[in-house]
């Protein structure tokens, strides 16, 4: 294994993680809800009865870059090189998969693991494993990216 020290950002990543943990803590203590993004979106798609709360949470996420620009300054520039057809396929798989598993990186990976949920541990190991394998196949077997 080779560590990419030049792109390692321990302080920003840890601080960002603490902020994410704070957000999840806020939502469960104030609203009694799990901060699971796929679950919130899924309920909106299914027009669940509590859609206003879901919409408010989702709008907060979408507005975060705007808040960042107002509070902190220029936004970090995302690097995205995935060609459009692959990006669309990725989106569809993420949509179906997270609904089927009833959670994603936030619901299972952050909230579920924080609750010491065996279900979320199995989910997290499964998606981390298949994501790692996908990157391995794409980069090292097919030579893309």
């Amino acid at each position: 294994m080779q560590i990419a020290w030049d792109s390692f950002t321990p302080f920003a990543s840890l601080a960002g993680g603490l902020l994410i943990g704070l957000a999840a803590s806020w939502l469960v203590l104030m609203n009694g809800r799990i901060a699971g993004i796929s679950g919130m979106l899924g309920g909106l798609v299914d027009r669940a009865g509590d859609w206003p709360l879901r919409l408010a949470f989702v709008l907060g996420l979408i507005a975060a870059p705007l808040a960042w620009r107002g509070l902190i300054g220029p936004l970090p520039v995302p690097q995205l090189t995935t060609p459009l057809p692959l990006l669309l396929l990725a989106g569809v798989l993420v949509g179906i998969g997270t609904r089927l598993a009833a959670g994603c990186t936030s619901g299972h990976g952050v909230c579920g693991l924080s609750r010491l949920s065996p279900r979320s541990l199995l989910a997290t190991l499964s998606f981390m494993g298949s994501a790692g394998l996908t990157v391995f196949v794409m980069r090292h077997l097919l030579g893309w990216g």
Binding site: V94, M128, S130
Partner: peptide
């Protein structure tokens, strides 16, 4: 579901949030 999600995540590096 998690495996399908992981494949999508690995293809583009983007999860729902």
């Amino acid at each position: 579901g998690s495996v399908l999600f992981g494949i999508g995540w690995g293809l583009a590096g983007i999860c729902p949030g």
